[in-house]
């Protein structure tokens, strides 16, 4: 940990909690995101991963602990504010508007404009060209950026969303289970773009329940279990086997194995 503590983290959560009424969704979770690094958040269904994302993305406010951006303690009021502070979130299922053309999706919410007064309009040519160029840079060659984004494959859609975040100068990229619904090959493609984003100097929060995907690209690993932090490791302090074991249930799994042992 001492290696990077001298630098200020892009995002630093310490002891963050979130309750929905009487339900404790998150309790005392801490993590750091540094530029040019990938912080993986691992956890089973219901472990609090999506709550954590929503706090970083500005969709929900945390009610305990602190959230600091560039060392400055803050509380994000809206997704817009999170975006303005350089945090771009790619949500698992709500990343795109399926019926809209790729180029409209690419610039949604940050449309470039030209002209003055009532003739102020979107710079459509620029939008089409930029979308094509940015996607080509990520290795996606679209015949037609006018096709509805719903006609792209799941992996391609994730890549469009990542390319969008990179293009708009995000400093922190939050990815919600980007490989969850994908096959092996498409997952590989997405992981390649995740590391490409890291190489461009972005800090990445990579949420997943797949320790193999996480270990391929991750620098730090935070394990969540039922809303609490079950472990926090840097890459050099944990092996893939240990990570997989903890992810799979750790000691619970040992107990289970013991119980299920065949009588010899």
């Amino acid at each position: 940990m001492t290696r990077t503590d001298s630098r200020t983290a892009l995002v630093e959560l310490s002891g963050v909690s979130k309750h929905y009424g009487n339900v404790r969704a998150l309790e005392g979770v801490s993590l750091e995101v540094h530029a040019g690094e990938i912080t993986c958040v691992l956890g089973d269904n219901g472990a609090g991963k999506s709550t954590l994302i929503k706090i970083i993305a500005g969709l929900h406010r945390h009610d305990g602990g602190t959230l600091a951006l560039d060392g400055e303690e803050t509380r994000l009021a809206s997704p817009r504010e999170a975006l303005d502070r350089g945090i771009a979130t790619v949500h698992q299922d709500l990343a795109v508007v399926p019926l809209m053309p790729v180029w409209r999706n690419f610039f949604l919410g940050s449309e470039p404009r030209k002209g003055i007064g009532p003739f102020k309009r979107m710079d459509v040519d620029h939008m089409r060209r930029t979308t094509r160029a940015e996607l080509l840079r990520m290795g996606i060659d679209l015949r037609d950026v006018d096709q509805p984004i719903g006609t792209l494959s799941g992996g391609e859609r994730q890549c469009v969303a990542i390319a969008r975040a990179v293009h708009f100068g995000a400093k922190v990229l939050v990815l919600d289970e980007p490989t969850a619904a994908l096959g092996v090959k498409q997952s590989g493609v997405v992981l390649k773009y995740v590391s490409a984003a890291r190489d461009e100097g972005l800090g990445v929060v990579f949420i997943t329940h797949n320790p193999h995907h996480a270990y391929l690209v991750g620098d730090r690993f935070v394990l969540l279990k039922r809303g609490t932090m079950a472990g926090s490791h840097t890459r050099d302090s944990i092996t893939l086997d240990e990570l997989t074991r903890q992810m799979a249930g750790g000691t619970e799994l040992d107990d289970l194995r013991h119980e299920l042992q065949r009588p010899s």
Partner: peptide
């Protein structure tokens, strides 16, 4: 307009 009708949550998430 297209975005809020096509996928309201996605639109909100990107700041529309």
């Amino acid at each position: 307009i297209f975005a809020v009708g096509g996928n309201e949550n996605a639109a909100r998430a990107v700041g529309v």
